[in-house]
């Protein structure tokens, strides 16, 4: 039994082996981009919105509102980043219902890549917002003694994000595979339903946590932000 789709090599392009993780990532990217292009190709002010455009507007505005609840003054770049995170993870997890499809998020490499992207995005957004000096000051707050702990906190954030998403998605896939061998006609359906639910929840949690990390780096530290560890326990 293969636990990671990284080990499944599908084909080669110019001598580069393409595994299932990368291939299915491209599938998800193609689905998201294709759907967006189809809906927004004739998007003009004089054309009344149809149901598909309205659906995309609801999704985008929903993401925007969630970000605005966390970050007081979010930039569009934060929407691009966090929204793409959510849509990619959610689409990957929802495509689990397609037979033969392996979610890229069940790969530790994918979750690591997403976590690294968040870990790298936090200082980038922080420096963009506060400047490099202002951002580095956050590591010695509230006192210089907290510098090592803050540095450790930055890395543990990435690790926690990686393991949480990977564990939930991979475990669901593994449990479904095990139950498929035990009760092939009943449990896989139930587990797929649970997988859809947990997949959406994980996409939401991953995105929210990433937004919290970025917004904490872009806004001044406040006493109320002590609630962040509680969210991290999700």
């Amino acid at each position: 039994m293969t636990l990671s789709p990284d080990q499944t090599l599908l084909f080669e392009i110019w001598g580069i082996a393409i595994n299932a993780t990368i291939f299915y990532t491209w599938v998800v990217m193609a689905v998201l981009t294709g759907a967006s292009m189809l809906v927004t190709r004739n998007l003009r002010p004089d054309v009344p919105p149809n149901r598909w455009r309205t659906t995309l507007e609801v999704i985008v505005q929903g993401i925007q509102e969630q970000i605005q609840e966390i970050a007081p003054n979010p930039s569009r770049h934060l929407l691009y980043f966090a929204g793409t995170l959510f849509l990619f993870i959610a689409a990957s997890n929802l495509l689990l219902v397609i037979p033969g499809f392996t979610p890229p998020t069940s790969s530790l490499s994918t979750t690591t890549a997403l976590a690294l992207a968040v870990v790298l995005a936090v200082p980038l957004f922080g420096i963009t917002s506060r400047g490099i000096g202002g951002y580095l000051k956050t590591y010695i707050q509230p006192s210089f003694v907290m510098l090592p702990f803050n540095i450790i906190s930055e890395f543990t954030r990435g690790i926690s994000l990686t393991m949480r998403l990977y564990g939930n998605i991979m475990s669901g896939a593994v449990i479904a595979a095990i139950l498929l061998s035990v009760a092939p006609f009943f449990f896989p359906v139930v587990m797929d339903l649970l997988g859809l639910l947990t997949g959406m929840i994980q996409a939401y949690i991953f995105t929210i946590l990433a937004t919290v990390y970025i917004s904490s780096a872009t806004s001044p530290a406040k006493p109320s932000q002590s609630a962040l560890p509680e969210k991290e326990t999700l």
Binding site: T25, W26, M29, T33, A113, A117
Partner: peptide, 16 residues
Amino acid sequence: TVAAQIGNFLVLIWLL
């Protein structure tokens, strides 16, 4: 794969 996925993610951000 991690590097490829980071690249894929950045490309996806640009596409979306």
